[in-house]
Structure formats: structure tokens, C-alpha cells
Simulated scan of single mutants.
Amino acid sequence: MVDAGEINRRIMTRVGRVLDYAELAVPNDKINLFRKLVLDEFGHSGLRSELAGLLDHGDQSGEDGRGKEPVTGRKGGAP
């Protein structure tokens, strides 16, 4: 089973590295804005909430393993 906490820790470790690299390249007057944008994209209002949604629904797969039962218009989903 995938642990959401472990995924988030790994993502934030890499985000921290990206922010460290950005300090070398982004002008000082813009680093705080860059930091805010990156954390928004990967934090609670971005990727982190999207992953939480995927992981919350990951165990609800249909008969075909793709998350939905086949819709064919025939009784029992027959092809």
C-alpha cells in the first residue's frame, strides 16, 4: 500500500532542493515570490491535494481495474 505521508515527504524534500537551486539563480528581490509559487503548486493547494484525492479513491476500482465498470449498454456490461 502506498503511504501518503511518505509520498509527501519525498515531494517536499525535492521541493526544498529546487528552492535551494533557485536561490542561486533567482534575483533576491524575486526569491520570495518564486518560493510562494512553488510551495503553492506542490503544497496543500496544489499537487498535495490532488494526490490525496487520488489516494483516497485508489481502492475503489471497478471490475475492469480502471476505476470504472464497463458501460456497454447491455445487461451485466456484456461486450
Rank of each mutant, 00 (worst) to 15 (best):
L33G: 00
V38C: 01
S45H: 08
D56W: 05
R74V: 10
R14M: 13
G58H: 07
E6G: 04
L37E: 00
G76C: 07
R48F: 02
R9F: 02
G5P: 08
L24H: 09
F42Q: 06
D29H: 12
I7S: 02
T13L: 05
E50H: 01
P70E: 08
V38F: 00
V26M: 05
V15Q: 04
D64M: 13
E6T: 13
R66F: 11
K68N: 06
N8C: 07
V38L: 08
P79Y: 02
K75W: 03
R66C: 07
L39F: 03
A25I: 10
R35W: 01
K68W: 11
G43H: 01
L55F: 09
G58L: 13
N8G: 02
D64W: 09
R66Q: 13
R10L: 13
R74I: 06
H57R: 08
G65H: 12
E69Q: 11
M1V: 12
G77A: 13
V18S: 09
V2T: 11
L51G: 03
K68L: 12
D64L: 15
A4N: 05
L51T: 08
V26G: 05
L37D: 00
D3M: 10
P79I: 08
A22M: 15
R66H: 12
K30I: 06
G73P: 03
R14S: 14
V2M: 14
G65I: 10
L39P: 04
P27D: 00
I31H: 06
K30N: 04
G76A: 08
E23D: 03
H44I: 04
G73V: 04
G43E: 02
V26Y: 10
G76V: 11
Q60P: 02
R66W: 06
D3T: 12
K36H: 05
M1I: 11
Q60D: 10
G43T: 01
P70H: 07
V15W: 01
D64G: 11
E63F: 11
F42A: 12
A22F: 15
L19P: 01
P79Q: 03
T72Y: 03
G67V: 15
I31E: 08
R9C: 02
G58K: 07
G58A: 13
S49G: 04
K75E: 05
G5H: 05
I31W: 07
L54A: 09
T13W: 00
A22Q: 15
D3E: 01
